[in-house]
């Protein structure tokens, strides 16, 4: 592909304008880019929690130019940068950071999710017929960022401490206390807004369960 395109270039600028060295560097660089593209596709990348409208990862990878605008405008500060550890393709794309904030789908903004609004390349774009979660009316919507999962070993309620922070935080009635007072997720009503993960205190000082490496309730991507 690259070589084809290079040939007219070589013909157009004869003599000192296009030396063997120039050609070698160009060919090396071109080959490097093709290898990088193939490599990035082959190396598996983690499925991540995306801002609303970013659920189609292929579109997100194709269109995201890493301008960081969505992260900046998020009123809840819930969008974080993605690191190399999450896969080469995901590098610098937006992902949800529910430790820092949670997504209320910009219920109180008049023009919908701000991240979708500012995205210049439509990498974040709501599909036709999208219904957003509404924290005021408890409507769940059909834009699902992920689903919450409770780790009973790390949950304070499991240890009889009577904690129900996550249940109180949930705006969509997707959490309730089970028979043993440990929160249970209603997967039908959970849209992965992350309010529960954001509210969970299981990793704060004095509340840490032995061996816990994450909060007791976390939102995971849909499989």
């Amino acid at each position: 592909m690259a070589e084809e395109k290079k040939m007219p270039g070589a013909l157009r600028a004869p003599g000192a304008g296009f030396t063997r060295r120039t050609f070698t560097l160009g060919a090396l660089g071109a080959a490097g880019l093709v290898a990088l593209g193939a490599g990035a596709k082959i190396v598996p990348s983690k499925t991540l929690l995306r801002p609303p409208g970013g659920q189609d990862e292929v579109t997100l990878w194709g269109n995201c130019l890493h301008c960081e605008k969505c992260r900046e405008v998020c009123p809840k500060g819930a969008i974080g940068p993605t690191h190399l550890e999450d896969g080469i393709l995901n590098m610098r794309t937006p992902s949800m950071d529910f430790k820092a904030g949670w997504c209320d789908f910009c219920t109180n903004e008049t023009d919908g999710p701000q991240c979708v609004k500012v995205c210049p390349t439509r990498a974040l774009i709501l599909p036709a017929g999208a219904v957003l979660g509404n924290t005021e009316t408890c409507e769940v919507g059909n834009i699902v960022l992920g689903v919450a999962e409770v780790n009973r070993d790390w949950c304070l309620a499991q240890r009889g401490m009577g904690c129900h922070e996550c249940v109180d935080a949930c705006a969509f009635d997707a959490l309730e206390l089970g028979y043993d007072h440990v929160p249970v997720v209603d997967a039908e009503r959970c849209n992965g807004c992350g309010a529960c993960e954001n509210a969970c205190i299981s990793l704060t000082a004095g509340a840490i369960a032995p061996g816990a490496t994450d909060r007791a309730i976390v939102v995971v991507p849909l499989s």
Partner: peptide, 29 residues
């Protein structure tokens, strides 16, 4: 070489490769 217009060099080859690889792999490589 020419004194006017644009001299095509290795950068332009890489530009073509950038466009080509993006077309093939479907993301801005």
């Amino acid at each position: 070489g020419k004194s006017r217009g644009v001299k095509i060099d290795s950068r332009h080859g890489i530009l073509a490769a950038a466009l080509g690889s993006t077309l093939v792999f479907g993301f801005p490589v």
